[in-house]
């Protein structure tokens, strides 16, 4: 298998309390150095709770944010240009809120033409032919092209958002919570459409979500993010069924599942670590039942276990259950 995307030591710091001159008052490490490989044709799920840095990572990947350090390689070639237009031809983004990602004062045709004209410099005829082709692929009727975004339901608007991302002809799509704003019955329609498009166009997906069940249903592999760092990467069917990192275990046990009695897996009243004052060592230490003195020294690195799962933990769970 060839690599579609390789991230090496990618990180992002945000200054807090900027001053007119001089250094900022504090720095938040929104994304700790992340190293990940994504194979061509793969769906990599990225899960994590709010504030874990998953959207920041996504925005770096499409060039909307500049990484503080690290490199992005697409199909073996490093991307060192900060121009979103260069990124746009190789990697595209589908937004969480389908309505607000469409300019309310433009028709769908104007929205669809932008990537064709500005990224590929296509002629008017070529553009309309291509739009027709894409609209057929996402099951949208052509008469929608001359309407405005507010005339569409959430599911239709998200199809238009996906169509726009496809128009750029990028091989990699970043799907940032693409169905979490949609109703459950429409969610399944969009997820199935994404699966069809993937085989039809040979796409690679990075599927970001907070919904474990959705991620499990669509991904080949899953990466779990906690406090800006990857804590576990493994095959989708294993990660939640046999979690190796205590945090993944906590996530899996917290998800409401039909037939499982209600329990709070985390009895203690814990709050997430403070980004302005990050703990030493493992960020999950304070919530972890297995924490030892070693965990308070340095943060554990992501290491491959004998069964192929990568875990950043000194005391990985055995995976027995």
């Amino acid at each position: 298998m060839t690599l579609a995307l390789r991230l090496t030591g990618l990180s992002k710091d945000f200054p807090v309390g900027k001053r007119l001159f001089g250094p900022p008052r504090a720095v938040v490490h929104a994304v700790q150095p992340v190293t990940l490989d994504v194979e061509e044709g793969e769906t990599l799920g990225i899960v994590g709770e709010s504030g874990c840095g998953k959207s920041t990572l996504a925005r770096i990947l499409v060039g909307l944010l500049q990484p503080t350090s690290g490199t992005i390689e697409i199909a073996g070639k490093p991307l060192d240009n900060a121009d979103p237009a260069v990124f746009g031809r190789m990697i595209q983004y589908v937004f969480q809120d389908p309505i607000s990602s469409l300019n309310p004062r433009k028709t769908i045709r104007q929205i669809m033409e932008a990537p064709l004209r500005h990224l590929h410099g296509m002629s008017a005829d070529a553009r309309s032919a291509r739009i027709r082709e894409i609209f057929a692929a996402v099951n949208l009727r052509e008469e929608f092209l001359d309407r405005y975004p507010h005339e569409f339901s959430g599911g239709q608007a998200q199809r238009i958002g996906i169509a726009r991302a496809l128009a750029a002809d990028a091989r990699i799509l970043i799907l940032d919570e693409p169905v979490s704003a949609l109703d459950v019955s429409v969610q399944a329609q969009v997820l199935n459409l994404l699966a069809d498009l993937k085989t039809q166009f040979g796409l690679t997906y990075l599927f970001i979500s907070h919904d474990l069940a959705v991620v499990e249903a669509v991904s080949d592999r899953v990466a779990v993010l906690y406090f800006g760092a990857v804590v576990e990467v493994g095959p989708a069917e294993q990660v939640f069924a046999r979690p190796r990192h205590p945090y993944t275990r906590l996530l899996a046990d917290s998800a409401p599942v039909v037939g499982r009695p209600l329990s709070a897996p985390e009895a203690r009243e814990t709050e997430l670590p403070d980004p302005l004052n990050p703990p030493r060592g493992c960020a999950f230490r304070a919530r972890c039942a297995h924490a030892s003195a070693l965990c308070g020294e340095t943060a554990p690195a992501l290491e491959q276990q004998p069964d192929g799962v990568w875990v950043a933990c000194y005391h990985p769970l055995t995976g027995a259950g």
């Binding site: 399944a188 199935n192 069940a213 959705v214 669509v218 080949d220 939640f240 599942v257 039909v258």
Partner: peptide
């Protein structure tokens, strides 16, 4: 609705 623990599958929309 996908449910955790059922693995990768096509959803009946």
């Amino acid at each position: 609705v996908p449910e955790l623990g059922q693995g990768r599958r096509v959803l009946a929309a």
